[in-house]
């Protein structure tokens, strides 16, 4: 194989969307470069794909839903585009054919704006065995380490499910009574059971010193999303706490904490207010509430939504307390 051919080969590392055959695949280049490819229609090829390489950071943004597929193609490395024929794949390796600049502008080959990773039919297993490290400091006992990891894992689990399987989240939410106490604990236990084995978060190493570090292995995209969320919360924790207390007070006053999911608020204005306060908490975590998967997963039931958001807040606040105490640094 000559050098030129070697550079024009890529490996299909994952099928991201399968619908009547593969429609969107992830590529790995010879140097570990990442690429993306969409199925197209083109004369002279049996199962053509239009592909480009992309920067790892942009791919990560796409996978966590921060940018759409069109953005990926618009930011192709070196503005270079390729064709390959899936019919000619051998051991997951495809031969890339460089597309001329003119042909690369053919909009028939491009995805339209607005296709996000939440539409994938497969969960990307971004798990690596290289741990993501969290710096720790000060004195810890085992129960504190256990508490920190448990709360971090619960946030990881709900972010994983809401990003990759919102239908499952919907089912889990609708199967719970949300009447306080154990129902929240069992909800998060169930969430963690739903994270596929290949994406489970595990504590791989504890370097206990001052300073030391915790090594976690899991889906790196989701781990980074948890870290981002907690860092954003750090700057908005006061607003979030005010909103938390407002909702908590109203649920107490209205005797809704242990009531059934179908129970109504005493007025529409109070319900609207509670929805707004719950949105404020999610915004404080950097979660967009314009297109809100959590509210959708609650079937737009404000009572359940508010209880879910409060439960998320408690977990984030619990992790954040370790940061406030100076015992955890997320960098």
């Amino acid at each position: 194989m000559n050098n030129r051919n070697f550079l024009l080969e890529a490996t299909i590392s994952e099928t991201l969307l399968y619908y009547d055959g593969p429609q969107l695949v992830l590529l790995s280049g010879a140097n570990g470069d990442k690429g993306i490819a969409v199925a197209i229609t083109r004369d002279g090829m049996e199962y053509p794909f239009f592909a480009c390489y992309i920067h790892q950071k942009i791919l990560e943004k796409y996978l966590i839903g921060k940018v759409d597929l069109y953005y990926l193609f618009s930011n192709a490395s070196s503005s270079a585009y390729y064709f390959f024929d899936l019919f000619l794949v051998k051991n997951d390796i495809v031969s890339l054919e460089r597309v001329s600049e003119d042909e690369a502008q053919n909009k028939d080959y491009w995805p339209e704006k607005g296709f996000f990773s939440s539409n994938h039919s497969s969960v990307l297993s971004s798990r690596t065995e290289d741990p993501e490290y969290i710096n720790i400091n000060g004195a810890w006992d085992m129960s504190e380490l256990s508490l920190f990891f448990k709360k971090f894992s619960e946030i990881y689990a709900i972010l994983f499910i809401v990003n990759f399987n919102v239908r499952k989240l919907k089912k889990l939410i609708s199967s719970r009574y949300w009447q306080g106490g154990g129902s929240y604990l069992s909800f998060y236990d169930s969430l963690m059971e739903e994270v596929e084995n290949s994406n489970l978060l595990t504590l791989k190493s504890i370097q206990y010193a001052s300073p030391g570090k915790l090594g976690m292995v899991g889906n790196t995209v989701v781990i980074n999303k948890v870290v981002d969320l907690i860092q954003i919360f750090e700057n908005h924790s006061v607003q979030a706490l005010q909103a938390y207390r407002s909702i908590d007070r109203i649920l107490n006053n209205e005797k809704l904490k242990s009531s059934e999911a179908s129970t109504n608020f005493s007025s529409q204005s109070i319900e609207n207010y509670v929805k707004n306060q719950a949105d404020i908490i999610l915004n404080a975590l950097g979660i967009d509430t314009q297109n809100n998967p959590f509210f959708d997963a609650c079937n737009c039931n404000v009572l359940i939504y508010s209880k879910l958001v409060l439960s998320i807040h408690r977990r984030v606040d619990s992790v954040h307390n370790f940061i406030s105490e100076g015992r955890v640094q997320l960098t």
């Binding site: 969307l17 619908y19 429609q23 199925a39 597929l69 704006k113 607005g114 296709f115 539409n119 239908r167």
Partner: peptide, 18 residues
């Protein structure tokens, strides 16, 4: 191929083949 929900299919139309 079918889909459990309608919304993803609406978004599949943003893919070149659909």
């Amino acid at each position: 191929s079918l889909n459990a929900d309608k919304v993803p299919l609406i978004n599949f139309r943003k893919m070149p083949r659909f």
